[in-house]
Design a protein around this nucleic acid. Structure first.
Lengths: 166, 166
DNA sequence: CATAAGTTTCAATTATTATTGAAACTTTGT
DNA sequence: ACAAAGTTTCAATAATAATTGAAACTTATG
């Protein structure tokens, strides 16, 4: 397979994976491009490669920086800004987990706790409380596990897998 | 807090959580409604509660059945179809993990393997191979862990947490 | 087999989200 | 202070996804 073909395939696939991960298509494509790039890329490089507008490039690069997936890199003697993506896949996964926890898990946990305060004694209320309590317990477990993962220095999965299989 | 208020809050929150999980808003809302319902609901019940059209209700109910989150339940002597959601949160999580693995992880793994076949010796190609190989390894790890989870009979997280903390 | 009760499909519409492009803004060098 | 190089913003537009509603279809029953 030719390099160009492989590259395009990868960028496309990463983009569509992104869509189902709360990361917009273009954002994921820019990320993919930076992942496989051997050098930092400027906004123009990215516009050129992905055939997107300046505004689009700018906004998505900034979103990637918000997520902590991409960093700005200045070249001495140049005014242009260049961007690089961290290449450590574990760091990437941790960063994504962290952001999603903040954006998704925490809000639902808040609501689940709030609605526990429902009052009444009908079977509807009882069922409601039971279900939401179960979900809340589960979500808290998930949160605690995610924290373990996010804060782990080393390869967490390997450790767990070796333990659980022993 | 009143029951109606709590219910609405929960359904709304579940809906917006769904959006960031590849489960459309309405689909997640129907699921939420069935989760807290004490009895099986018909299509009409759902249309009524969520103020949605018949077509919308029908399609999303069917999607939920595809995901294995909702089951049809027939009442003897009635022609109408009723629906129930499983209330075991672990089963729910497992089911969602299973579907997402199938829909997202497996396709990207396929592409990652394909693009490993790129040829050339430039530093671009080397970098490309390295990055995609790392991602592929990670994804395989993730897959294997997900399988462990999906196939586990009992509460997997508890086990892991107790082990890793020991 | 004709009708009623219910379910499914899908073209048209509506709502949501992403993208463009040009103007406004910021920073640096002369 | 001005011009040049670069970045950011945002209203308008385009692309995508969800929803409606009515017609087509299916199934059970007298």
């Amino acid at each position: 397979m030719k390099y160009q073909e492989a590259k395009d395939k990868f960028i496309l696939a990463w983009g569509s994976l992104g869509s189902s991960w709360g990361i917009s298509r273009t954002m994921a494509q820019i990320h993919a491009l930076l992942l496989i790039s051997t050098t930092p890329l400027s906004t123009e490089d990215i516009m050129e490669e992905l055939q997107i507008s300046r505004g689009n490039a700018n906004q998505n690069i900034r979103a990637l920086m918000d997520w902590g997936l991409v960093e700005k890199q200045l070249k001495t003697g140049e005014r242009k800004e260049y961007f690089v993506a961290g290449k450590d896949v574990w760091e990437l996964a941790k960063q994504v987990a962290k952001e999603r926890k903040k954006r998704e898990l925490e809000p639902i946990l808040k609501v689940l706790n709030q609605v526990q305060g429902v009052n009444g004694n009908t079977k509807e209320v009882k069922e409601f409380k039971e279900v939401t309590k179960n979900i809340s317990d589960f979500a808290e477990q998930a949160e605690s596990t995610l924290n373990l993962f996010i804060n782990s220095k080393q390869n967490w999965l390997y450790k767990i897998l070796s333990k659980i299989r022993s």
